[in-house]
Amino acid sequence: MFKNENVRKLLWPAVALLVILLFNVFFTENFLNIEVKDGHLFGSLIDILNRGAPVLIISIGMTLVYATGGIDLSVGSVIAISGAVAAQLIRPGYIHGILEYPDPPTSLFVVIGVPLLICAIAGAWNGVLVAFVGIQPIIATLILMVAGRGIAQLVTEGQIPVFIHEPFQFLGGGFLMGVPFPVIVSILLIAAVYFLTRRTSLGLFIESSGGNPIASRYMGIKSRLIVLSTYVFCALCAGLAGLIICSDIKAADANNAGLFLELDAIAAVIIGGTMWGGRFTLAGSVIGALIIQSITTTILAFGIPPEVTLVFKALVIIIVSLIQSEGIQDAINTWKTKRAQA
């Protein structure tokens, strides 16, 4: 039906997203309405994009890690660290009971740059453990998943610093030409990653390193460095998401920021059709993240407690992975092989 395999693979996730949206069109009031208030866009669709930005951003990073045959469980903790560091930079005295801000206020450059740098170091830690020490990814990233939230709490000393920092708040709560800024950030990120992976050979090397590390080594691809860099990038994405969340709520909650977000991201990647150790699709992950967010928004709209969305997400992930599972894929592959050889 669709000649291009990449397009064909996106078909089912896209249909799923469409079904969820259609369901909303019929059962949620004013779902398709997009209003302009004070020059800003408002509406359910915009809300899905805006609220979904953190998941979207993390799933982009997770996509690349997943394609190398890895997984990063530590993104939730990294989100907490990045928010905690940013809040601490904006209002260093808060945790000691000093409510004053430094004068002059911490520059935006520092507030964004330093947390991201720390996240990159966290990612490098994961990457070195996986690619160079040779620890299984689940285990290696588990260490930071456990300790990371502790580190974040250490930074905020267990408190939830609240702050005001106009330029920084723009990151999570601002509007540019009427569009929520997180949406713009995620679109820019997707474009940049698409360019970096698909307009250069990086994407191919990632897929090759994940698909067959030995063969890649025999072709002279620096697999280890590539794997390392995907973990660094994934942590950077988590850091960016952490900044957006922190800037949006104007506070750093080390205990709850990014909780379960690693699961959302993994779900988005799997739903999107990226293979564990193989072909990845950014578009698929974007659709996957939107599906995850739409489920959340839909359930909210129905007055069901948002926590219960976990049940629906769980069902979606297990159904999709069953469809992709070896047992079922084997049958499809045999059929395809026969056709290809005929």
Binding site: L144, V146, A147, R149, G150, L154, A254
Partner: peptide, 8 residues
């Protein structure tokens, strides 16, 4: 939080 860090 030191508990988490020590465990890690």
């Amino acid at each position: 939080w030191w508990f988490r860090i020590f465990i890690g």
